[in-house]
Write a protein that binds this DNA or RNA. Structure first.
Lengths: 321, 321
DNA sequence: CTATTTATACTCTTAACGAGTATAAGTGGC
DNA sequence: GCCACTTATACTCGTTAAGAGTATAAATAG
């Protein structure tokens, strides 16, 4: 019998699509490989270990695992982050090998997921509801998060720590007049974690009771944290790289394009300015064809101008309102 | 005797400082752990394996290794990328374990390096001479790179491939009227690698002869590639995060700040506009003290305003000329 | 005292951005 | 066929940021 490996490299994928103007990602549920959070199994991201003998590169290993677990063939893939905090994985505490996790972001046009695998598409904002500001600041922030953060601030040991907590809360959530920065998704999740507002915090601390106040649905391991990393990176990238088109069909109307950007950015955009941005950036070209089955005036169908990838310095969609 | 591990995780550090207006990084030379490129040992970045039992996190492992190899205590550290291409490490080909490499960028104020370790400070542009455009486009580009890329273009199999190569060369190096994008450091290195203009290309292909035309000094393994990644990331980050201050002493003149930014950006900046940018961004505050030993009119010493980290959305120094 | 060097204050022009108004071209209800 | 409604598209306006240049102030070296 060979000795157990001392290190395992895990490949994790946040696979993102936008359907019906909602950002979604693939989760694996009901798999028994992940311990339950509270009663039932928490959703996890697709993942699998690097096979040192079989996988030639990390990305190829990831693609293989995703194909196996979801039946999907990935297109755009980008590495997010690698972490290996000790005891992050419960199996490690039980004497298992050290786990090094490498997280990836993948963008796909939503398709059917192979049946019977436990894989399903879930909405991003079911897990991170405070990130959807398309119809103004979510009510959840006013009604639940802000008051709870207020209690967290008051629980600080001294006046200086209290001031620091208040400032941090204001900046990350754009409270009390501070600007809300849509890219700071990870910072917001981590603040909620520290303040005990997500149930992963209690779970990781070894508590059996879930917190009295919690926001969003929990995920296995630190997969919700990883998801926050993915959304933040995606929002940032949107501004200077034409990545949205990975999520759209070959032709689309400008409104559709706008809706997809809004879905990811979690913020409404000014229609006319968005148009101007897209056109002056020469990101798309008209096809001459008009969309038929629409309510109002029919819109022209556009396609992505792949050439911009080689033309401009930083083509993206950075509009903010 | 325990079984040899099947996976080893390597931690690599690009440790950057700016001294005398030159960007530098630490290399390890004369160590026998790395096979020679051609005759003598090629410089390598400091690195060491993750100890699954001893290192609690990746970053702590990295800090430990750097302390041991260079005597330096790192401050600012940022993860760059993880890769694990098979046979990237020569030891792997000889039947050794699979190597997963994690690269980090660290910023320090240059200090003395512990003696006897083989560690020394080297200039970035000794390895990437085409990246220093502070005194206009480097002569090397006109005299060596452009002609060699011309030959590489002509060697393409067909007209379409030739067009693609020309376009790629023009974009990455800003030739024939294309804009030069200082951030695309990695793309430029990779193009030179493909075109056979860096000696690592011949080495990795198993050739014993070095190429007829080569630019910059070679490094061990893919450490020059990693260095290019570090410089590109740093140049990008400079624009939207106040990272320069990690490289400067507590107080400095505005000209000194500008020189450091220019050294990293590899481009000259417009003095008055740079000043305006720094001041309207409220990145620094005057100390009231004036520098003494200078040639012309004495300049005021400034210090970094740490508060901006919590105030502005994206404080950086994005000026371009 | 003068040439030289560096610091600092303004001005000017253009482009980009956020916001709004106006108008065109369809659908569905009656 | 007209009206209410929805969506598309064109154009204007004011503000801010960015690139570039001119002018002046304050020191040192000879």
């Amino acid at each position: 019998m060979p000795a157990p490996p001392s290190i395992v490299v895990g490949l994790n994928a946040a696979i993102v699509a936008v359907t019906d103007d909602e950002p979604r990602l693939i989760t694996i549920e009901g798999s028994s490989r992940v311990p339950a959070t509270g009663g039932r199994e928490a959703p996890a991201l697709p993942f699998g270990p690097l096979d040192p003998a079989g996988h030639r590169t990390l990305e190829l290993g990831l693609r293989t695992w995703v194909r196996e677990q979801t039946g999907l063939e990935l297109g755009y893939v980008e590495q997010l982050y690698t972490f290996a905090d000790r005891n992050r994985d419960p199996g490690e505490r039980a004497g298992g090998p050290r786990v090094v996790s490498i997280a990836y972001l993948a963008l796909v046009r939503e398709g059917r997921v192979a049946a019977g695998t436990g894989a399903r598409w879930r909405g991003f904002y079911e897990f991170l509801p405070w990130e959807d500001g398309r119809r103004g600041r979510p009510a959840l922030v006013e009604s639940v998060i802000a008051p709870a953060l207020g209690r967290w601030m008051k629980a600080a040991p001294d006046a200086e720590a209290r001031r620091a907590r208040r400032e941090r809360a204001d900046i990350t959530f754009g409270l009390h007049g501070a600007a809300f920065d849509s890219v700071r998704v990870l910072e917001r999740y981590e603040l909620l974690y520290e303040a005990g507002l997500v149930s992963e915090a209690a779970r990781d601390a070894g508590l059996s009771r879930r917190p009295a106040v919690e926001v969003g649905e929990a995920m296995a391991l630190d997969h919700r944290r990883l998801m926050a990393t993915a959304l933040g990176r995606l929002r940032g990238k949107l501004k200077y790289r034409p990545v949205v088109f990975e999520l759209l069909p070959a032709t689309f109307t400008l409104l559709k394009l706008q809706r997809v950007v809004e879905a990811l950015a979690g913020a409404p955009l000014h229609k006319q300015n968005f148009r101007r941005l897209v056109e002056t950036g020469r990101l798309v070209e008209g096809t001459g064809v008009r969309e038929s089955r629409s309510k109002g005036r029919p819109a022209e169908l556009f396609r992505f101008r792949r050439e911009v990838l080689r033309e401009r310095r930083a083509p993206g969609l950075s509009a903010r309102s």
